[in-house]
């Protein structure tokens, strides 16, 4: 177990080093999320009250697509350059490759969320400061859950002919419960709701995250075998 975590850490460090040199994933995700917000604004063309009601949905649409970008890009360059085979040859547990990739995706999506959320709040004229601690828990749980499935399906989609199209087709239906839960909890929080108002949703988020994290680590081994 300890060695597995140490191995994941190595994979994570490698990925972050590559990312730090180019910053291509973070930058594309950030710009992408920003564009989504602006486009949504045009799409609804509504008053502030309506926008505040739909804001949680927009936030999660933007982050879901940014998350898919990150997950997809965590495999496709390695696949194209052939370095992924090298990674598989390394004498480490396959599960730790997955954990490292997942950790990298969660980090990058988290960074983008940190950058984009204040802008959301600014554009839609919402209050965020009193809800920070709740949002932190919700965002963490949801992002880990969503990203585990996203990372697993990205490893599948990268092998298909239509990889960019296949990822959303595979991922979004399966991830829909977690997306529904995220939008609902985020909305409740922004409306000033308490933990008691969303017990069911928090439970769903936690169980989903744990179950799909474990399942993904176990199933990843089958996906990358030759």
């Amino acid at each position: 177990m300890r060695s597995m975590l140490a191995q994941s850490w190595q994979i994570y460090r490698k990925d972050m080093l590559v990312e730090f040199r180019t910053r291509e994933r973070v930058v594309t995700m950030f710009v992408f999320s920003l564009i989504v917000v602006i486009i949504f604004n045009f799409a609804f063309n509504a008053g502030a009250d309506v926008l505040q009601r739909v804001a949680p949905g927009m936030i999660w649409v933007a982050f879901a697509f940014a998350g898919m970008l990150s997950a997809s890009r965590s495999f496709s360059p390695e696949k194209d350059r052939g370095t992924f085979d090298g990674l598989l040859l390394a004498p480490i547990d396959r599960g730790s490759i997955f954990l490292g990739k997942l950790l990298g995706n969660v980090t990058l999506i988290g960074l983008v969320q940190l950058a984009v959320l204040p802008l959301f709040v600014l554009f839609f004229n919402m209050t965020i400061l009193p809800y920070l601690s709740k949002l932190l828990v919700i965002f963490f749980l949801g992002t880990v859950g969503f990203t585990s499935v996203a990372t697993l399906f990205a490893a599948v989609a990268v092998n298909t002919r239509m990889r960019d199209v296949m990822l959303p087709v595979l991922l979004l239906p399966v991830a829909s419960p977690v997306l529904i839960a995220l939008v609902e909890t985020t909305r409740t929080t922004f409306e000033g709701g308490d933990w008691q108002d969303m017990t069911n949703w928090i439970r769903l988020l936690s169980v989903f995250t744990v179950v799909f994290l474990v399942a993904s680590v176990m199933l990843f081994e089958y996906i990358v075998e030759e």
Binding site: L152, L204, Y222
Partner: peptide
């Protein structure tokens, strides 16, 4: 193998979709 993985994840997902 990919299909089997999708089949398994989809089945695990059914109760979650139901409650959600």
């Amino acid at each position: 193998t990919f299909l089997a993985v999708l089949g398994i994840l989809g089945t695990i997902d059914i109760p979650f979709i139901h409650f959600a």
